[in-house]
Nucleic acid binder design. Structure first.
Lengths: 187, 187
DNA sequence: ATTATTTCTAAACGTTCGTTTAGTTATTTG
DNA sequence: CAAATAACTAAACGAACGTTTAGAAATAAT
């Protein structure tokens, strides 16, 4: 053994994640990352392989960051009302630092829809499918509808969630919250 | 005068527009544009100034392309039912060539939300505001609600439109259409 | 037919990108 | 203290980007 690292990986990943969240993947350059993370390119590459590897780590970090919202959602006792609350919680986290960043997952989903990056797309699909299953589970609590009808409702909500996350970058918090209210009127 | 151009500008713009529509702005390189438009870089620059200028021209071309949908919408005699029909028409045009491309305006809006490009953003905002005014107009036909309530409804529909355009890149046409039905359930 | 003018081709431009490498500095171990 | 090892700095890498330019080809006017 020899010299020790002068940085903690989880800490610099958090900083990188914030930068990716604000600017997106492509717009964030290694030079910007160097500055924001406070470490040299060499250190980034030795710790995370390459830009893509760093980004995957940042996605994990983001999921960790929002895991409390997800856990709360999963463990909530009610049905539709819990889904609505989850939407509100998500919006709140999207407007964190009075800086509109939207949802990193949705942003990434949209940015990568043009590209062919299996590793990223798998993560995105896994996230969305997971969310869908939870929503279906909650819907069943409040409904005696057919499986097909519930699936349709779940798709509706998932699409609404996707839409509001996309819109969170260009709309005000008030507009987003009005939208949530309207969305659940239709359920 | 001397040699004549060997291409028609409106024709090569149409081709460029299709490419931007499929791939987005950044992902589309000048090299790809050369190939798709069938003309040399020099010709592109002499006709459109630069990549940004070409893209602005493509946005105009896209608006022209969807202008029939817009005209139909503007001149429609009814209220809410016409808005719904407009949504359906928009979705149809998004799924044009069995290739999912979404809406170029919305794609651009999302892609440029990270950046600072005044010319593009102005075009986007103008488009959205125009759409909003038409929607408000239609809503008033079917409603005696307060101005504020109508504005809220208009915001809801606009956000829904934005959301479904974003989602059009990752969802099926069936899912999108189910979503439209749900959206208009309680309007 | 010659000249002037415009468009064409194709190569090169300077930047920036993500990535790698050579050499220095610091820490651990014998 | 000296040797070994790992992490640092900083410079350079090749490739791709958008853009420009020099020269050939083609058409109009004289």
């Amino acid at each position: 053994m020899a010299r020790k690292k002068e940085y903690i990986e989880t800490e610099v990943v958090e900083k990188a994640m914030q930068l990716f969240w604000r600017n997106g993947y492509e717009t964030t350059s290694m030079q910007m990352l160097e500055k924001e993370m406070g470490i040299n390119k060499f250190s980034i590459y030795s710790s995370f392989g390459n830009k893509n590897g760093l980004f995957l780590e940042c996605l994990k970090c983001y999921k960790e960051k929002i895991s409390n919202i997800f856990e709360k959602f999963k463990n909530a006792p009610n049905g539709i009302e819990d889904i609505k609350q989850f939407f509100y919680d998500s919006v709140s986290s999207n407007f964190n630092d009075d800086y509109i960043k939207g949802c990193l997952i949705t942003n990434t989903y949209n940015e990568f829809s043009n590209k062919e990056d299996k590793a990223i797309k798998e993560q995105m699909n896994a996230f969305m499918n997971n969310l869908k299953l939870i929503i279906i589970d909650k819907l069943k609590k409040d409904s005696t509808k057919s499986e097909a009808a519930i699936l349709e409702q779940a798709n509706y909500l998932l699409l609404a969630k996707h839409g509001l996350a996309a819109a969170a970058r260009v709309n005000s918090k008030k507009e987003i919250e009005d939208y949530i209210e309207m969305t659940f009127k239709n359920i």
